[in-house]
């Protein structure tokens, strides 16, 4: 029988995983909404965040330094990816964009193997947060609590940024009609590059944050990118709010599954996705007419 305390802890773990996934999903949704690109290399950017983080911490830098520097470095990688491999493909059949991101994911995985080897890296959580805290008789890891808090604030900030700021308005307009936005005097190719870079930074952040909690290996990108896209399908394509809620849902599902049926966590997510596809093909929060293309 699973105790109350374990259940509460699984909830926190699930929420923390969910909000971190939301960081990944936010970037994916933005890139998909604006450029119509299904970026399979998004998981690779997440993985690079974790590896850059490990390297910085091992080199004697603090975790906090890594939390700032690694995502920026990933942002630069994302920027180079967009400029040199995606820019030449806009306007071509969208198939080639997903193919190129598949190729990039491949190249990043193999490059990581070359640089860091194939064995798992040990990413230590910062000493300050190594302890635990007690709330209402339940013990939590301080680090997990920090990640939950940090990512929640960040996701909320992204949401407000998209809904309430001028940049948000520009992005909404670009998602709807990039050509027109260009004709109004905005350099849309720079908007695309900027959005891709920011989405890479968010992925890198998620990588640093989840690094200490999960195995840092050259193949870690794959399950994450599958989970992230499954969340988008569950939440409804191009629906930001749906994506966030679905992230939390999948995070919780993962948390409880890890407690009850550990080897089936991913299978449960895909099963949920299949059910959503059968019952509501447009996603739980999608509208029937919601065509993102």
């Amino acid at each position: 029988m699973v105790g109350f305390e374990a259940l509460v802890r699984a909830t926190i773990l699930g929420l923390q995983f969910g909000t971190t996934l939301a960081l990944l999903v936010a970037g994916l949704t933005l890139v998909f909404g604006l450029m119509d690109v299904i970026n399979l290399a998004h998981g690779s950017l997440y993985m690079l965040g974790a590896y850059f983080g490990v390297t910085l911490v091992d080199a004697g830098g603090s975790f906090w330094l890594a939390l700032v520097v690694a995502p920026v470095a990933v942002g630069v990688v994302g920027l180079l990816m967009e400029v040199f491999t995606l820019r030449p493909l806009y306007g071509r059949e969208p198939l080639y964009q997903i193919l190129v991101t598949l190729g990039l994911a491949f190249v990043v995985e193999e490059s990581v193997k070359e640089v860091w080897g194939t064995s798992a890296q040990n990413f230590a959580a910062p000493a300050v947060l190594a302890g635990s805290i007690d709330i209402a008789g339940v013990t939590y890891s301080q680090y997990q609590a920090f990640v939950l808090l940090f990512t929640t604030v960040l996701v909320a900030a992204i949401w407000v940024g998209l809904e309430r700021t001028n940049v948000g308005v520009l992005l909404q307009a670009t998602a709807h009609d990039p050509e027109m936005v260009d004709a109004l005097g905005f350099d849309v190719s720079r908007v695309f590059t900027g959005v891709f870079a920011v989405s890479a930074v968010l992925a890198g952040l998620a990588g640093v944050l989840l690094g200490p909690a999960r195995a840092v290996t050259p193949s870690m990108w794959f399950n994450v990118v599958l989970l992230a896209f499954a969340i988008i399908v569950i939440g409804g394509l191009g629906n930001f709010r749906g994506a966030i809620v679905a992230s939390l849902l999948v995070g919780l599902l993962t948390g409880y599954a890890a407690l009850l049926v550990p080897s089936y966590t991913e299978l449960l997510v895909f099963a949920l996705m299949a059910v959503v596809l059968l019952v509501r093909p447009a996603g739980i929060f999608g509208t029937a007419t919601g065509d993102p293309g």
């Binding site: 001028n166 308005v169 520009l170 909404q172 307009a173 709807h176 009609d177 027109m180 936005v181 109004l184 005097g185 905005f186």
Partner: peptide, 16 residues
């Protein structure tokens, strides 16, 4: 831009 308000449409263009 149909999902933006009138003011947002105008302000966006003005921002360029």
């Amino acid at each position: 831009f149909p999902s933006l308000t009138v003011a947002e449409n105008v302000e966006l263009a003005a921002a360029a």
